[in-house]
Amino acid sequence: MSAPTAAKIRVLIAKPGLDGHDRGAKVVARALRDGGCEVIYTGIRQTPEMIAEAALQEDVDVVGLSILSGAHLELFPRVVAELKKRGVSDVVLFCGGIIPEEDTKALEGLGFSAIFRPGTNTQDIVKFVYEHVQK
């Protein structure tokens, strides 16, 4: 999958909002690491501005947002808007956490290519990333 000096897929894993449980985000980060990605992990309590700025500075290919608080329809549009404001329009977006089925359409409309809910096999997330990024 990856020679030592070949280009690597860079993924930002971020947790917007105020909930402090980042086990899920860490499991996903770890799975992507084991899948050969370079994962920038920024920790909990990130504002939409901080996430967009990290995506810009780190020049990531993928942004994955983890949320458990239920504020996704509040926070995710703001993340997308902040990315756009910075001209970061070509990243692949996915999200995971506690996200009701009825919100799927709204998130797809925002540009999220996948939603991973509890019980997801982490290999499916790795596969998703490799299918959506050309390196």
């Binding site: 990856s2 050969g36 370079e38 994962v39 920038i40 920024t42 901080m50 500075q57 780190e58």
Partner: peptide, 28 residues
């Protein structure tokens, strides 16, 4: 990682105060 060649880059976590400062650029 010597096995997957992947990595977790976590140094930004300790630099949150600089996250929105236009005079600072952090690259992992």
């Amino acid at each position: 990682s010597p096995f997957s060649q992947g990595a977790i880059l976590g140094d930004r976590i300790r630099m949150q105060d600089l996250a929105l400062d236009e005079g600072v650029y952090v690259r992992s």
